[in-house]
């Protein structure tokens, strides 16, 4: 009985995780430009991975509890993977967004773009400086 409840919890967590990762995929196809696609690509994959890794951790704890030491390997390694995903996923998204904006990809139908305004100001001051030098 207890085993059945645990198994169904594991399947439920897997289903939630797969659903959110699927949503990230659909978002990548539907959104218009790189920034909005990053929104789908970071939030949904992180949230989905939390649930998938949660189910793996539960399987690991179950094997560990039943007396197999290899369950501890499964549990701890997937927990470390979760921490790595939480740290690197937003950082990578930030790097891609920054690189995109620097190479001139502007957000589509943007209401406001303060970074572009700042970039123009910087270019003006740089031009003035070079003119002063010459």
């Amino acid at each position: 009985m207890l085993d059945m409840i645990l198994t169904s919890i594991i399947y439920l967590l897997l289903a939630i995780g797969v659903f959110f990762n699927l949503l990230a995929g659909i978002g990548l196809l539907r959104f218009p430009d790189v920034y909005t696609r990053l929104h789908a690509g970071t939030k949904c994959t992180t949230f989905g991975s939390i649930f998938i890794i949660g189910s793996v951790i539960l399987i690991g704890l179950k094997t560990w509890y039943l007396g197999d030491v290899n369950g501890s390997v499964l549990t701890i390694h997937s927990a470390v993977a979760l921490i790595a995903i939480l740290l690197t996923n937003p950082t990578g998204a930030h790097a891609i967004a920054r690189a995109a904006h620097r190479s001139g990809v502007m957000p589509e139908n943007a209401v406001i773009d303060e970074l572009q305004i700042k970039g123009k100001k910087q270019k003006k001051t740089e031009k003035k400086e070079t003119e002063d030098h010459t």
Partner: peptide, 10 residues
């Protein structure tokens, strides 16, 4: 994702 309503900006 489902409705496609966005109004982006920086």
């Amino acid at each position: 994702v489902i409705t496609g309503k966005i109004k982006p900006g920086i």
